[in-house]
Design a protein around this nucleic acid. Structure first.
Lengths: 231, 231
DNA sequence: TAAATCCATATTGCATTCATTAATCATAAC
DNA sequence: GTTATGATTAATGAATGCAATATGGATTTA
């Protein structure tokens, strides 16, 4: 109950992090040092250290003499994402199958329980964070310091892109989410069986599903109305 | 000539960075806040921000209440490196061929000039930094925010691994370096021709050369002496 | 003699204060 | 009326001082 400045600092770090993942803090949004330091009950010095760290992890961008802002999502974001994601995801999941420890597998199952729970009665934020957590653990399992930075960066924007289409809740979406959950189960099984090839293949499939959802959202069916009606 | 605190701060950042790349600061080496802040003429506050940034980029590791230390090179480093490097290098170089701007190509040629210069009459440090710079520019060219973090992380340890065998200067080494330089020229040509396939292939070859050098150093020929002689 | 605990010292972390830089608005000149 | 320049204000960056935590050595006890 007695929270030290250090506790408040890490709470600050976590809250900002999650707020960015769930679009509560929108891309390119400016962060007010004075305001946030007051909100979290810490001085500007440790807050600025949190900024630096989040910046290093890809959550924030820092510009000299102009403060921190949430990492932007530009018109090139999706293209870059589509190029990098399948390669890195497949590699991480393959390595996860090769290197996962028993404790990590237990953690992954627990994360999947939380994810299913969020599908039943959670908000879009809950689902996004639970899904993020699931894949984060596969990153732990892979335990390759060189692939991890890009993987983490992908997870950040995957969460943010996902949030944009988790919001409008349609039946088609629900179906896809349930399919995603089944794929998680299959991935867990492959990792537990140390089947690297299967893990990589499942990661690829999982990516294709997500890619399809993104494309549907980015390029929806035309409105099929005569132009005159819109005016 | 009149250097502001901000100049000293960025000088500090650059010097520490290069010292790590060239092994002047050895892996797992502890950094003394008080000492460094005095050396660079800045207070501990901005120095700690530099630490955070370098930590985010993979140069340093920070432990709570125990200061910063240079990123470690463990027994798993080479294995992780061999798994990740060919994939990321090929991807980055391919993208570089597709996206390079005229200014970036000019910068790459300039970096290659510096590299050749360092081969003629530079130290191991000079060569390592010049080679680092060359590949860093290919990272700029690729301009994919998701692949960049892992690519940068690889470049750091590639520089450090390279330094360990640039030091003893043999004729075989000199030959390999001259071959590496030729490969750089070929990569520049492929990028300028926008030939993505060739660029990816050349990156793969370039990696194989480097991999061979690393393997030679890690697993040298046995000393070919009767065991008794060693005692 | 070995191990454990406690105290002294050094180092890290945080808050406050001061300096420096950028942004905004008003005023004046064209 | 518009643009440019200057002054005012807000916000970022750095330094100093203080608090908290860890480390090393000494002393005491088994």
């Amino acid at each position: 109950m007695t929270d030290s400045p250090k506790d408040r600092k890490s709470a600050c770090y976590e809250q900002i992090r999650k707020a960015i993942l769930t679009l509560e803090l929108e891309p390119s949004c400016d962060l007010d040092e004075a305001q946030l330091s007051e909100d979290f009950g810490i001085s500007r010095t440790p807050l600025r250290e949190v900024f630096r760290q989040l910046s290093g992890e890809g959550y924030l961008e820092m510009r000299a003499n102009r403060g921190a802002r949430v990492s932007a999502m530009t018109h090139t974001t999706l293209r870059d994402f589509f190029l990098a994601a399948p390669m890195i995801y497949a590699a991480i999941t393959r390595l996860a199958a090769g290197n996962a420890t028993a404790a990590q597998i237990a953690a992954l199952k627990e994360a999947q329980r939380s994810f299913k729970q969020s599908l039943r009665n959670g908000s879009a934020q809950d689902r996004t964070l639970a899904n993020y957590r699931f894949h984060e653990i596969t990153g732990d399992m892979a335990s390759n310091v060189y692939l991890r930075p890009s993987f983490n960066r992908l997870l950040i924007d995957h969460a943010r892109i996902g949030m944009t289409f988790y919001r409008p809740h349609t039946n088609v979406m629900a179906e896809k989410l349930s399919l995603a959950s089944e794929q998680h189960d299959a991935i867990i099984a492959a990792i537990e069986a140390r089947d690297e090839a299967a893990a990589a293949r499942l990661a690829e499939e999982h990516w294709q599903l997500s890619r399809g959802q993104i494309e549907l959202f980015v390029m929806p069916a035309a409105l099929d109305l005569p132009l005159g009606k819109l005016a």
